[in-house]
Design a protein around this nucleic acid. Structure first.
Length: 873
DNA sequence: GCGGACTGCTTACCT
DNA sequence: ACAGGTAAGCAGTCCGCG
């Protein structure tokens, strides 16, 4: 199993550039099925998919009490369809070919609300017997018509929307009919919403609708983590999972029910040394030996089928794909296998759901918002993520896989399976709960939630609401055509519109600084100003010409006041539920289990809220709406500017601010409160005290400061000394100096501490001058973000170092971090492995030390040159 | 032929 | 591949320089 980044990359799909989103679903090649009873106990809906053989939507339900998986096939006659504005008679006369499509079923007339034209319209709906006949197949109805809508929505999602299904919620089958199981909501929580939204039936209704999704518990989902080892004749060469040429010699299984097992292949010439048994890392791991690989796989398939959820780390690209192809090679028939490979590189688990944690943890929004960037900045390997989240450090393997003894192999193999399982169990099953909650909010099956980015989740959530309201889902081009382009210019080249404001900070040391922060500024703006793709620049002339409908005076965009915007309502609701309900509950709840759960709820909500503005400025989002995005940032600029003016008015002293924050120097507490109230009153947005510094050092650069908070902790932002690529020696110097800085108790200490800092700086300077530093502390660690061959415009230093490395046979690819030092050799750089201390370019490192330290020294008004003497060498 | 001013590319950060 | 704004370093280009 590949664990290193470059190894992972080898299996990333290269050719699957699916430009067109097809409605095609995977072909169910497997004949394995679960029971389909006419009555079931309450069960959790874990997957919704399309079964090509049955030609129907298929729901997978997990009954966690009796530990059973059930299938439920659609029996309502639901069919794939598309919508067109061509009347049926015209279809019949002008587009007769539609009827000749083999999967054509029938036509009908429907009335839908067009959110762009903002009126009810009549459409023709054309049904097909299978998704491919709508679009994606050899001959499809979509391709025969000049205009169609909703023809690119994948069928299983369409099925979810039309039936109001919520993946992750509880359902039961009663006399063959699928029904949702009710959820008990405590009266005091319901009351919170009733008070919050008194008199606003739209919000109140939505609140009641959404509450059960958060109140329904997430039951323990039985799962098994899987990891395989493959024999390879060449060391450091990872076997190709598509070819599956070599033997699978071990499969590790770690179950949430306590299963600890390694299936091992007996190999000629390898003996089991009985003395070694005591060396098993976990003594209760059960080893099972097999004489044939076929039997080993047979046992594997049998074992996993006791679980509704299969968990892997990179199983889509490696483990499960390898197993699948290897099984075919060994004579298994496709129908016998519980795994199916899809065209877009997924390895699906037929009975339940396969969750590939490599994919899930690679989702940017999960990484940043749900896990607070804890594993950011490094490699996304099992070891790296496990070490960041679980604090388990890496165990090195000393020999090639093929040379390990049975016990060594079992230890190595089982450990990875166990780590994979741990990634789903730590913090009270945080990961599983998060996935289920994300599925509920987005109406997306667990399978897709764990594989698609946040824009797909938000798309699904919003599409679901369209269908619920009987709205037509517009095509992407319709939105752009109706809403037009932008009116502002970005400061950064190649960006589409203007963003946030950053206030120019004045360098200096400031005792007692209070920071005010707009509470989720952009979502609040979306709520407060009724911003939604359909309300912004709505088609009503009267609305367009009413100056009162222009939220930003110097922007030409107006916003509809007649109806509440869909996304405004959704974002507003989710934001309120997070702030007023689940953050509060998470704080007040006594039961630790329940407290943890509320925290997962508020973290899941955070993901959606934080991404809600960005998607409207992202071209890949199907409701991409630049005027909406630019209104949000413009209103943000207005909010912070007005707040600053008011602050000055009140005699407060703003010294810095960035986007949604305002730094106030030594404020009068009464005035501060006055400002907060004014903002709430006049701007209709919440602003709150975020943090307070005992002392703050502004370097004079934007996004760049260090401060000591009231609890004595250091808060460093943007300083070079904090960046990953800065050599450790410079980082240490900064850390040292900041520590000295933190000893400043009052303004009276400044001089004394300044002297101490000067001395320390000089020490570091001399250390570098005298090359009295270990080489690895001089290493610059910089990531390669694309294939080396793609650096055509220029050759940055880290790429030069990478090229030197490749001469020694070290392969470098995207995601790899290059360690290099600056040398006085011809290239100017060398990979740290190849360099000697006497080749170091001392001046360059003094320069590094200078820029790192100056960001602190500038605040203190000290010059680096003064300390070290302007010595040019 | 060389150095300074400049632009553009690249990475890592902030909100 | 949810957004834009900023710091910093280096590569490469242009231009002046009697």
């Amino acid at each position: 199993m590949p664990k290193d980044k470059d190894e992972l990359e080898q299996f990333e799909e290269q050719e699957e550039e699916e430009v067109e989103e097809s409605s095609e679903e995977y072909i169910q090649e497997s004949a394995i099925t679960a029971e389909t009873p006419t009555n079931t106990p309450p069960s959790i809906l874990i997957d919704v998919t399309y079964d090509g053989k049955a030609g129907k939507a298929l729901l997978k339900l997990y009954d966690f009490i009796n530990d059973r998986i059930y299938y439920w096939y659609d029996n309502t006659g639901h069919r794939p369809y598309l919508i067109t504005d061509i009347p049926p008679e015209e279809v019949a006369s002008k587009y007769r070919a539609v009827f000749r499509v083999k999967g054509f079923d029938h036509m009908d007339v429907v009335s839908k609300f067009d959110p762009l034209e903002m009126r009810q319209k009549t459409y023709t709906i054309i049904y097909a017997k299978d998704p491919l006949s709508i679009g994606g197949g050899r001959e499809s109805i979509r391709d025969l018509l000049p205009r169609s809508w909703e023809a690119r929505i994948k069928y299983h999602l369409s099925y979810i929307y039309d039936n109001g299904l919520i993946p992750g919620m509880f359902y039961r089958v009663e006399n063959g009919k699928l029904t949702r199981v009710g959820v008990e909501v405590p009266g005091d929580i319901r009351k919170l919403g009733e008070e919050l939204y008194a008199g606003d039936d739209e919000y109140l209704g939505a609140f009641r609708e959404w509450l059960p999704l958060f109140q329904a518990p997430v039951p323990p989902l039985k799962r098994v983590a899987v990891d395989i080892e493959v024999y390879t004749p060449q060391e450091n060469k990872i076997p190709n999972p598509r070819e599956a040429m070599y033997e699978i010699i071990a499969i590790g299984l770690a179950g949430s029910d306590g299963l600890k097992r390694v299936l091992l292949l007996r190999r000629p010439g390898m003996e089991m040394n009985p003395d070694e048994v005591g060396m098993l890392l976990s003594s209760d791991v059960e080893l099972m030996f097999f004489d044939s690989e076929r039997d080993l796989l047979k046992e594997f398939f049998k074992e996993i089928m006791a679980y509704p959820i299969l968990v892997t780390f990179n199983g889509d690209s490696f483990d499960l794909t390898y197993i699948y192809n290897r099984a075919l090679k060994l004579g298994f028939r496709k129908e016998e296998l519980p795994i199916v490979l899809t065209r877009d590189g997924e390895a699906r688990y037929v009975l339940g759901v396969h969750i590939d944690l490599y994919k899930f943890f690679s989702i940017r929004a999960v990484e940043v918002y749900a896990f607070g960037g804890k594993y950011s900045g490094g490699e996304k390997t099992l070891d790296a993520i496990a070490s960041a989240l679980l604090g388990i450090s890496k165990v090195e393997r000393e020999k090639p896989i093929g040379e390990l003894s049975y016990i060594e192999l079992a230890n190595y193999n089982f450990r990875d399976a166990l780590l994979t399982l741990y990634l789903t169990t730590f913090n009270n099953e945080l990961t599983m709960k998060l996935i289920v909650l994300l599925a509920r909010i987005s109406k997306t099956p667990l399978n897709d939630v764990s594989r698609y980015q946040v824009s797909a989740w938000i798309r699904n959530m919003v599409y679901f609401e369209h269908r619920r309201r009987g709205w037509l889902i517009p095509n992407k081009e319709d939105v752009i055509n109706a809403k037009g382009g932008v009116a502002t210019k970005a400061l950064i080249k190649n960006k589409k519109y203007a963003g946030a404001i950053v206030i120019e900070p004045v360098a200096g040391i400031y005792p007692s600084v209070y920071v005010l922060d707009f509470a989720s500024l952009y979502p609040s703006i979306i709520k407060r100003w009724n911003l939604s793709y359909e309300t912004v620049r709505c088609p009503d002339e009267k609305q367009a010409n009413d100056p009162g409908n222009k939220p930003v005076p110097n922007l030409p965009h107006w916003v509809c006041t007649n109806m509440r915007g869909l996304t405004s309502l959704l974002v507003g609701l989710l934001r309120d539920m997070r702030v007023y309900v689940y953050k509060r509950l998470a704080k007040s709840e006594k039961d630790p289990q329940q407290k943890d759960y509320y925290n997962v709820v508020q973290a899941a909500l955070k993901v959606f809220i934080n991404a809600s503005y960005g998607v409207f400025g992202a071209e890949i989002f199907p409701l991409y709406c630049p005027p909406l995005a630019e209104l949000v940032t413009a209103l943000g600029r207005l909010a912070i500017t007005k707040t600053i003016v008011k602050a000055l008015d009140l005699g407060l002293t703003p010294i810095y601010g960035d986007t949604d924050s305002l730094f106030l120097y030594n404020p009068d507490m009464g005035k501060l409160e006055e400002l907060v109230n004014w903002v709430k009153e006049e701007l209709g947005i919440d602003i709150e005290l975020d943090k307070a510094y005992r002392i703050l050092a502004l370097s004079g650069r934007k996004k760049n400061y260090a401060g000591i908070l009231q609890d004595g902790s250091v808060d460093m932002k943007g300083l070079v000394g904090k960046k990953r690529n800065t050599p450790d020696i410079a980082k240490e110097a900064v850390k040292d100096v900041v520590h000295l800085f933190s000893t400043i108790g009052g303004i009276g200490d400044v001089e004394k501490v300044t002297e101490a800092i000067k001395d320390r700086v000089k020490e570091y300077y001399l250390m570098i001058r005298n090359k009295d530093v270990p080489l690895d502390k001089l290493a610059i660690k910089m990531a390669v973000n694309k294939p080396i061959s793609d650096y055509t415009k220029n050759t940055p230093q880290h790429v030069k170092a990478a090229e030197l490395l490749s001469k020694y046979g070290v392969k470098v690819g995207p995601g790899d971090i290059i360690f290099f030092v600056k040398t006085s050799t011809k290239e100017g750089v060398k990979p740290v492995q190849l360099a000697r201390i006497d080749e170091i370019d001392v001046d360059k490192y003094v320069e590094y030390l200078r820029t790192s330290l100056e960001q602190i020294l500038d605040a203190l008004g000290i010059s680096f040159e003064n300390i070290v003497g302007s010595r040019l060498m």
